[in-house]
């Protein structure tokens, strides 16, 4: 029984990790290439979920909804970049934090005005509904497996894109030394815009994919944003590989810590104290992990800047 639980929670952790990776990929590139702290990245995830919910309700089909939501999320990201963010690239981090914090406040509220404060729900697509028996006694929802699989597929594609194509090469070079790339005659402004739009779309995709299993509500991106920052800081800013490994690590540590922390502690402490400290420690685990990583490697596991 406990082993089954371990498998289920591992899959849940993997699913959270994949989700975090989809959001972190864009954020770490924006951060690494443009040296831009975008707190509003979590909002892109929320917008993606809302767009998917709206278009699914309109078309009656999740996949049509997704197909419409992605270009809209991309467009929305590009509009934000064009009107606001591009004027902030040259500013210091503090100005960027303040402005993007303002954008979070605005968009969280705007979402409430447009779609209402009540959470929206999106039905799981018919063909992927229900659960599947992975092993005797191990039932797992199909949709969560779809999320994991699509996330891993995108991670693979993204890895190929970044390591094998010309645009990927420019992005990597930009993360290492952006002014040098610009000096070599690359239109860095256009590169920034592509990276930004792409990152916004990935975050939107993540939001759309979890819309059927989470409630779509204002502010849903806020806490995930902080987890995403933990991921990119552990992974090393600007590194896709680092983001991927750190995302899975954070997803697994968080999920497994919450479900097994108290029972592991029970081996050392009496039951009451174990469940008390376990509950206290579990949500803190990833932050402790991050503080520890930064303590030993102040620039993360795979820093892009040399």
């Amino acid at each position: 029984m406990s082993l089954t639980l371990l498998y289920v929670q591992t899959l849940n952790g993997l699913q959270l990790g994949v989700l975090l990776f989809l959001i972190a990929a864009g954020l770490t590139l924006v951060f690494g290439v443009m040296d831009f702290v975008n707190l509003a990245h979590g909002v892109q995830y929320m917008i993606g979920a809302y767009l998917a919910a709206m278009f699914t309700a309109l078309t009656g089909n999740f996949f049509f909804g997704l197909a419409l939501a992605l270009p809209c999320a991309l467009l929305f990201g590009l509009l934000l970049e064009f009107f606001i963010f591009r004027h902030l690239y040259a500013r210091d981090h503090l100005d960027q934090v303040l402005a993007t914090f303002g954008i979070i406040l605005t968009l969280n509220q705007a979402v409430k005005v447009i779609w209402g404060a009540a959470p929206l729900s999106v039905p799981i697509p018919e063909i992927f509904s229900g659960s599947v028996v992975l092993m005797p006694g191990l039932l797992y929802p199909v949709w969560r497996l779809v999320i994991i699989a699509s996330g891993l597929a995108i991670a693979l594609l993204l890895g190929l894109l970044v390591t094998k194509t010309r645009i990927g090469m420019l992005v990597r070079a930009g993360a290492t030394n952006a002014p040098m790339v610009s000096a070599l005659g690359v239109d860095i402004g256009r590169l920034f815009m592509i990276v930004f739009g792409f990152g916004a779309m990935l975050a939107g995709f993540a939001g759309a994919m979890v819309a059927p299993i989470l409630s779509v509500e204002p502010g849903m991106g806020d806490n995930l944003l902080i987890l995403t920052f933990v991921v990119i800081v552990i992974g090393g800013i600007g590194s896709i590989r680092g983001a991927f490994i750190a995302a899975l690590l954070v997803g697994l540590v968080d999920t497994l810590g919450r479900s097994f922390g108290p029972s592991i502690l029970r081996a050392f402490l009496d039951p009451a104290a174990a469940s008390q400290t376990g509950r206290a420690l579990a949500p803190m685990l990833i932050y402790i992990l991050m503080a520890a990583v930064l303590f030993f490697r102040p620039a993360g596991l795979f820093p892009a800047k040399k």
């Binding site: 100005d95 303002g102 406040l105 968009l107």
Partner: peptide
């Protein structure tokens, strides 16, 4: 917040 957020952005810009 719909008004306060843009205000912050304008202050920064």
């Amino acid at each position: 917040k719909l008004y306060f957020g843009p205000f912050l952005v304008l202050v920064v810009l």
